[in-house]
């Protein structure tokens, strides 16, 4: 069980990250940028949705992972339109939980790239990834989160215990 933060009342809300199903896919009509139904059907990739337990029909964030030459790539990460922005977002920790989940997946792969989560950042988010999630800028906008930083994220976002 993972938890995301309801910014309105400051309470943690139970959530889960599940393998995406077509019937749950959010659409551009709802303000999303990508056609997630199409992305689910792409070969050689896995798509996951983050949903709260109490509102399982609403997707709070979506993630597409790919493995290329044994390296895990966070190909797409999108959070729901209502979770964007510093002040008006409904839930916080959505991106953090999905990034931590991707780090956990990177530890599960075999080979030399085990424990490296790689991705291409948007130009204006490089500092955000570095400062908030311990990512390292490697080449151009290509970044990675290594095992040690990934482990911290897993503990912070996926193994949070309610007191």
């Amino acid at each position: 069980m993972i938890y995301i933060l309801d910014t309105l009342n400051g309470k943690l809300v139970k959530a889960e990250i599940l393998v995406a199903e077509r019937k749950d896919a959010p659409s551009k009509r709802d303000g999303w940028n990508f056609n997630w139904i199409k992305l689910i059907q792409e070969e050689n990739s896995k798509v996951y949705f983050l949903k709260t337990i109490e509102s399982p029909k609403s997707v709070e964030g979506a993630l597409q992972l790919k493995i290329e030459n044994g390296m895990l790539i966070m190909e797409l990460l999108e959070i729901a339109p209502h979770n964007i922005g510093q002040e008006n977002k409904k839930y916080d920790h959505v991106a953090g939980c999905l990034i931590a989940f991707a780090c956990r997946e990177s530890i599960k792969i075999d080979g030399v790239y085990m424990g490296f989560l790689t991705f291409v950042s948007k130009t204006n988010l490089i500092e955000w990834y570095t400062g908030k999630y311990g990512a390292v800028l490697a080449l151009g906008r290509r970044m990675y989160i290594d095992y040690n930083s990934g482990l911290k994220l897993i503990k912070e976002y996926l193994e949070r215990k309610l007191i």
Binding site: W32, E68, V120, K122, N124, E127, Y133, R141
Partner: peptide, 21 residues
Amino acid sequence: MKKDNYIEPSNGVLTSKMDIG
């Protein structure tokens, strides 16, 4: 993690596609 004055995303898309190959 170090605390910087980073700007929170203003758009839901947080990554670009990797230029594989």
